[in-house]
């Protein structure tokens, strides 16, 4: 298992955002956490990325523990674990003052000491695959939403993570583009054997992309299953109710 999450709980003051959530993610698998806004799925994702700290529970990425029963490893270890997790933010958070190529090369060169030539070759390779090669010298403000998202994907992937997380990947895209991104995500999982964790409230998107789905409500996982079975389960009232909304 590339990612193991066991019994994580996250509280904000009096409110419980995530409650006793457990799941695991296999190599090359695509998992979608779905649910209404406020269901705790984004908080869960942020905990797995290390942007938030859990109060209880265990998170292990590719055999390296991030935290064990609420106790975190030291800062150096956290960085090591985080290196295995890539993130594509909801609004992409590209660096506006850097070109597309610079956005992608910044971390490999500055943080991981990769040679500029190598980093550039790698970045261009990703851009080529994502059909963005001609935008290498453009700045983020010159790109469309879909293009920005693909740059964000390239920026995360160039570090060769084990898991890549998407926070609401379709929220900034029109329906046609979400089809494209679904294709890109599936391709990443298949070609690079990357595990993908998607947060979304878009049922159709989840249905189209994910191998497996966890349905969250009030911070808890209430349903879990393979995509093809869970969505077809007409008898599941909860799913049907959510789908009809």
């Amino acid at each position: 298992m590339v990612l193991q999450v066991k019994g994580i709980t996250k509280r904000f003051k009096t409110q419980i955002a995530v409650k006793d959530l457990s799941f695991s993610l296999a190599e090359g698998e695509i998992l979608a956490l779905i649910g209404k806004s406020g269901a705790g799925k984004t908080t869960a994702l942020r905990c797995i990325c290390g942007l938030e700290r859990v109060d209880e529970g265990t998170i292990v990425v590719d055999g390296l523990p991030l935290c064990t029963e609420g106790i975190y490893v030291d800062q150096k270890e956290v960085r090591k674990v985080r290196q295995k997790v890539g993130m594509v933010f909801q609004n992409f958070n590209l660096f506006p003052h850097l070109s597309v190529l610079e956005n992608i090369m910044e971390s490999p060169v500055r943080v991981y000491g990769m040679g500029k030539g190598e980093a550039k070759a790698k970045a261009m390779d990703f851009l080529q695959k994502l059909d963005l090669a001609e935008k290498a010298d453009a700045y983020p403000h010159e790109l469309s939403g879909g293009q920005k998202q693909r740059v964000a994907i390239a920026r995360a992937c160039v570090l060769e993570p084990k898991v890549i997380c998407f926070d609401e990947p379709t929220s900034a895209l029109d329906p046609q583009l979400s089809e494209e991104i679904a294709y890109v995500i599936k391709d990443l999982a298949k070609e690079r054997n990357l595990s993908v964790l998607i947060i979304t409230h878009d049922m159709n998107f989840a249905k189209r992309t994910a191998d497996r789905v966890i349905f969250m409500e009030n911070g808890e996982a209430v349903e879990e299953g393979r995509t093809e079975t869970l969505f077809e389960d007409i008898s599941n009232e909860r799913i049907q109710k959510f789908m009809s909304n």
């Binding site: 290390g50 997790v85 890539g86 933010f89 958070n93 971390s107 500055r110």
Partner: peptide
């Protein structure tokens, strides 16, 4: 805030 988070996810130090 997202700029800090993006940098954090890319492994950048506070200084960087």
């Amino acid at each position: 805030r997202g700029q800090y988070e993006a940098a954090e996810m890319l492994g950048m130090s506070k200084r960087q």
